[in-house]
Amino acid sequence: MPNEKTYYSLEAGQNLVCHKCGVHLIKGNAVFEYLDNAFPVELPVCPQCGFVYVPEELAMGRVLSVEKVLEDK
């Protein structure tokens, strides 16, 4: 779905490697889901095993604040 809205986009950078597959992570399509809501995002993803990396700043920042909003819906 090329036209689908993306709520957040994060470059994979050069330094992130999937420990299991031994390949560099690339910017890939992912989705956050919580309480029947889904947010398409672009995050560093392993092209082989599909491991999605959520950095600490994102988890404790945007993700946490969106969780709080949804919990009070």
Binding site: N29, A30, V31, L43, E56, A59, V63
Partner: peptide
């Protein structure tokens, strides 16, 4: 989520964080 350094069977924990959302590829 745990960020750490591994030395054989020893782990130096550098940070721990969490979230309630689930995340997967699409």
């Amino acid at each position: 989520w745990v960020r750490f350094q591994e030395e054989e069977n020893h782990y130096k924990i550098l940070s721990v964080y969490s979230h309630r959302m689930t995340v997967r590829t699409r």
